[in-house]
Design a protein around this nucleic acid. Sequence first.
DNA 1: TGGGCTATCATTAGGGA
DNA 2: TTCCCTAATGATAGCCC
Lengths: 118, 118
Amino acid sequence: MKRVEHEAKREVTFSKRKKGLFNKASELCELCGVEVALILFSPHLKPFTFGHPDANKILQRCLTERDDHSPGLTRRNVFHRINGVREKHNESLKRLEEEEKKSKNKKKWYFYWRVLVG
Amino acid sequence: MKRVEHEAKREVTFSKRKKGLFNKASELCELCGVEVALILFSPHLKPFTFGHPDANKILQRCLTERDDHSPGLTRRNVFHRINGVREKHNESLKRLEEEEKKSKNKKKWYFYWRVLVG
DNA sequence: TGGGCTATCATTAGGGA
DNA sequence: TTCCCTAATGATAGCCC
């Protein structure tokens, strides 16, 4: 698994795999009757979401519901639990993304939601 | 695609497909260098998340980037343009942190993170 | 819940439109 | 971005631990 360098191909790959990922998420919902929220940003930073029963509900819960054993969704918490390998990997991906972002105009983001289910 | 009725089988299916879904999400990150957040609740309501670069960041962005015309993550699709993302984002993050402090100890979820690959 | 194993079925890459 | 097509690759169900 390596990053697809050719831009056009990367976008096609993204589009195809996003569809596949949404399908898988949908199947999981149907098969097991569970709640799923999925958010992703395209190479052009377009956001896409999938949610069952409704992405909003799930996200809100994640940000507010917890118990004493878990400090909730904080940046600290996240990085605490990520192991070194993953972290390094993320770092390099982040740098790649930064380079991409620089070549775009940040202030022209188009932001929209697509809730497929619910 | 129909719900798996037998409980034990449903749980096994969930476990296996969750793994597959996380792998797919991970592959999408690697191949296309994009941001992904994935949250799901098992049949027993255990939460699992996957995130790149970090689920928290993506979720907060989704909950805080909005304008006066849209109350945030609503069920219906939201379509709008964001300007001055950085400043708004930072302001909102502060508010979110305060709200999080207030809501501590309120609920009873068992919350934990599982970062797949690595 | 998750890991291993395997036959079978589903999905993806790649090319073209 | 999406759809069609095909070969090749990858994922899942079912069974045991």
